[in-house]
Design a protein around this nucleic acid. Structure first.
Lengths: 101, 101
DNA sequence: GGAAATTATGTCAGATTTGACATATCCTCA
DNA sequence: TGAGGATATGTCAAATCTGACATAATTTCC
């Protein structure tokens, strides 16, 4: 896929990092965003594997179904703190969370 | 260590979990608090091993020296988000962090 | 199909976290 | 001993995050 006969590679219409640049995010910021998304995916998977509804998780966690939905959606209004509390209240261990990084 | 001749074990003057109970913290809350402390220790160690001052770290991180002090002190006014951003900006990986749990 | 359950989205007031600043305390090295 | 750098503590207004609620969209069964 890489080596067609072309001398010059096609101009990329945009390059990786554009969003980061556009929003002027540091590498640390980017990593944090990725971590959040990874964790939210982990949480959704964990909930499903335990056959719980978002409502049930919300109760464990002391919050509302809608917030759990936002947690799983990677909504920016959800902090890492809340993500980790969710993870712990779902019984995830540090080891399992490492997967997200 | 378990089986001395005593019929009855000494009354513990307080049992583990008292603080938790007193403040009515969930297990998830406790784990989060422990995680925070673990990370703050890690951060302090990382900074020192890189021979940086709090001021220098503050600049990397886009904040003030005083907040870095609070980060390292495990001050409750510091969120997990900030702890992770600090860690990343010091070059620590997510894995290293989560393994500290 | 359609009712019921589940999940998603939007909004908001109150709570928490933020960087910044002032200032206090602790080091350390001459 | 003390001057200067490093670290700690307190405070505040602005920014962000929170749970709760309403309601929309989607999925699941019959």
């Amino acid at each position: 896929m890489k080596t067609t006969g072309n001398k010059k590679a096609v101009e990329p219409r945009w390059v990786e990092g554009d969003v980061q640049t556009f929003l002027s995010l540091s590498d640390a910021d980017m990593k944090l965003i990725e971590a959040r998304l990874a964790i939210s995916r982990l949480l959704k998977a964990a909930r499903k594997s335990q056959k719980l509804t978002q409502k049930a998780v919300a109760e464990k966690l002391g919050t509302s179904q809608s917030r759990v939905a936002k947690i799983e959606a990677g909504d920016p209004s959800v902090s890492l703190d809340l993500l980790f509390r969710s993870a712990f209240s779902l019984g995830l261990s540090g080891k399992e969370l490492v997967e997200a990084f």
